[in-house]
Computed example of a mutant assay.
Amino acid sequence: MTSTQAARRPILHRAKRKAEQMLGPAGIFFKGFVKHPVMVGAIVPSSRRTIERVLSRVDWDQCRLFVEYGPGVGTFCRPVLEKLRRDGRLIVIDTNPDFIAYLSRTIGDSRFIAVNGSAADVEEIVRAHGFDHADYVLSGLPFSTLPEGVGPAIMAATHRVLRPGGAFLVYQYTARARTLMGKYFRHIDKGFEPVNVPPCVISWGWKE
């Protein structure tokens, strides 16, 4: 590397940070969608009504560990942290390092843990942070477009990591994920939120 190239690095870094500040969370989210459309699955973050509806079945008094797959720019993270008990933890897992870096910079809550990794490895990630199980797991991953075998692997790992009585909260834009969920969760509550882009199908799979 030449001295000129080395000198340009801080300038480029500052320019990138400035662009991110100007774009805001929506810009970061759109950038993630463009780079990884199969993993992000939506162009804009979920609506406030979708967030409230998805989280409405959580017993926050009994939640010590909440896990989220595909947190994006933290659309659900902040509402979860607002409701989470003081001694609770929120672990978010995303394969996109840009999202993880953004969340690590912008969420300064000691209960928050951002992990760059695969949701299929949730059991190892949960254990690595001192927990035996999760109370609730949330996912907005587009199961219908994930690479072959990844969806079933995530579903199976999620069922194993949940405590009895815990739930897998899934929001999608089609009901196809419920067919896959049904292979692992006997009891699935169903919901729908029309005030979202696009309208959102919600499923709560309970571990008996």
Rank of each mutant, 00 (worst) to 15 (best):
N116W: 11
N116D: 11
N116C: 15
N116H: 15
N116F: 05
N116Q: 15
G117N: 13
G117M: 02
G117D: 13
G117E: 03
S118R: 06
S118L: 00
S118M: 05
S118H: 05
A119S: 15
A119P: 09
A120Y: 07
A120T: 04
A120Q: 13
A120W: 02
D121L: 10
D121H: 09
D121R: 14
D121I: 01
V122F: 00
V122E: 00
V122A: 04
V122I: 01
E123N: 11
E123T: 10
E123F: 00
E123K: 12
E123L: 10
E123M: 04
E124K: 15
E124H: 05
I125F: 10
I125M: 11
I125P: 05
V126D: 07
V126K: 08
V126L: 09
R127A: 15
R127E: 13
R127Q: 13
R127H: 14
R127T: 07
R127P: 07
A128H: 09
A128T: 11
A128D: 15
A128G: 15
A128K: 15
H129G: 10
H129C: 11
G130S: 10
G130E: 12
G130M: 12
G130Y: 11
F131C: 10
F131S: 05
F131Y: 14
F131P: 09
F131R: 10
D132R: 14
D132L: 12
D132V: 04
D132H: 12
D132F: 09
H133D: 07
H133S: 14
H133Q: 14
H133W: 06
A134L: 09
A134E: 02
A134T: 05
D135I: 03
D135P: 03
Y136Q: 07
Y136H: 14
Y136S: 00
V137N: 01
V137L: 15
V137G: 05
V137W: 02
L138T: 01
L138H: 15
S139V: 03
S139L: 01
S139D: 04
G140R: 04
L141P: 05
L141N: 07
L141D: 03
L141A: 12
L141V: 07
L141C: 12
L141W: 06
P142V: 08
P142S: 14
P142L: 11
F143L: 10
F143I: 03
F143G: 03
S144F: 08
S144L: 13
S144N: 13
S144T: 14
T145M: 13
T145H: 09
T145Q: 10
T145N: 13
T145P: 01
T145A: 02
L146C: 03
P147V: 02
P147R: 00
P147N: 02
P147E: 00
P147I: 03
P147S: 00
P147W: 01
P147G: 03
E148C: 03
E148F: 05
G149M: 07
G149Y: 07
G149N: 12
G149C: 02
G149T: 01
G149V: 09
G149L: 04
V150R: 11
V150G: 06
V150Q: 10
V150I: 13
V150S: 04
V150K: 12
V150L: 14
P152I: 06
P152R: 10
P152A: 08
A153M: 11
A153E: 13
A153R: 14
A153K: 14
A153P: 09
A153Q: 13
